[in-house]
């Protein structure tokens, strides 16, 4: 049997809200070490990679590897039936054809149970090579979300340039052009408010804002986001999930022809 109880159930709610517009169906790979998911969007431009380690659950039981194919829209609808402070348990019986979701109120006086039919998903797994990135930018996730939203006023793509001074987002379209420049923070009250640029070499890449906007829906998961860039390789956008794992998005760059 597979059973994973997540005391902070709202993490799962935020996760599914963050990926459900990008990916319709996904295989949750359940292993003794934890739960993972990898899926591309339908146009094969971006990829979602989720990891939730077993030690983030309490308890976590996985006797053998299981693949749970789940429609994320359905899962999102079901998760809307839980409260933010509910404890959420995912269970799958051996040889069962469904995943069971249990929502438990903090005082345990309300228990709801939903049985979701599993779906067969032909999921291509990609090998993501280890990459030494030219620049790694860390910033508040709310700031990332705001910049992406602001740039969308101007056009459908954004050029992100990292240098020792900081990071510059710029867009131009029919109505005009604009940019937002963030300097590296010198002194901040909280590390979560800081902007840092870890630079090996200056790099400038162009990306579709539509996808960055979808990625930024993960902002409620984590106060900070990390953007990793290298010339002519996909952007990595990473949100940490408490102490238990991460939600990563990869986005292929736009390249001059």
């Amino acid at each position: 049997m597979f059973e994973a109880r997540l005391p902070q159930g709202q993490i799962l709610k935020k996760l599914i809200e963050a990926v459900r517009e990008l990916v319709t169906d996904a295989n949750f790979e359940c292993k003794p070490s934890g739960l993972s998911l990898q899926a591309m969007d339908s146009s094969h431009v971006s990829l979602v990679s989720l990891l939730m380690r077993a030690d983030g659950f309490d308890p976590y039981q996985c006797d053998r590897n299981r693949t749970l194919g789940i429609n994320l829209r359905t899962l999102a609808s079901v998760l809307k039936c839980s409260s933010n402070d509910d404890i959420i348990t995912i269970r799958a019986e051996d040889d069962g054809d469904s995943a069971i979701l249990i929502f438990e109120s903090p005082s345990s006086d309300r228990l709801s149970e939903f049985d979701l039919k599993l779906v067969d998903i032909d999921n291509e797994q990609l090998v993501i090579p280890d990459t030494q990135y030219d620049a790694v930018v860390r910033m508040p996730s709310a700031e990332f979300q705001r910049i992406v939203r602001d740039m969308q006023i101007l056009g459908d793509s954004v050029t992100i340039a990292c240098s020792k001074d900081g990071v510059k987002f710029s867009a131009n379209g029919e109505i005009g052009s604009g940019s937002v420049r963030l300097k590296q923070s010198s002194a901040v009250d909280s590390e979560d408010d800081a902007v840092t640029v870890d630079l090996q070499q200056a790099v400038s890449l162009t990306f579709a804002l539509r996808y960055l906007s979808l990625f930024s829906k993960a902002a409620p998961l984590s106060p900070t986001v990390t953007l990793s860039f290298s010339k002519d390789v996909p952007l990595l956008v990473e949100f940490r999930i408490a102490d238990m794992g991460h939600l990563r998005f990869y986005l292929a760059p736009k390249i001059d022809e």
Binding site: L47, V233, Y250, I255, D256, E257
Partner: peptide, 14 residues
């Protein structure tokens, strides 16, 4: 003009 690349141009299938 910049063209959108597919992710499959960078990552290989398992």
């Amino acid at each position: 003009r910049a063209a959108q690349k597919s992710l499959l141009a960078f990552f290989s299938r398992q």
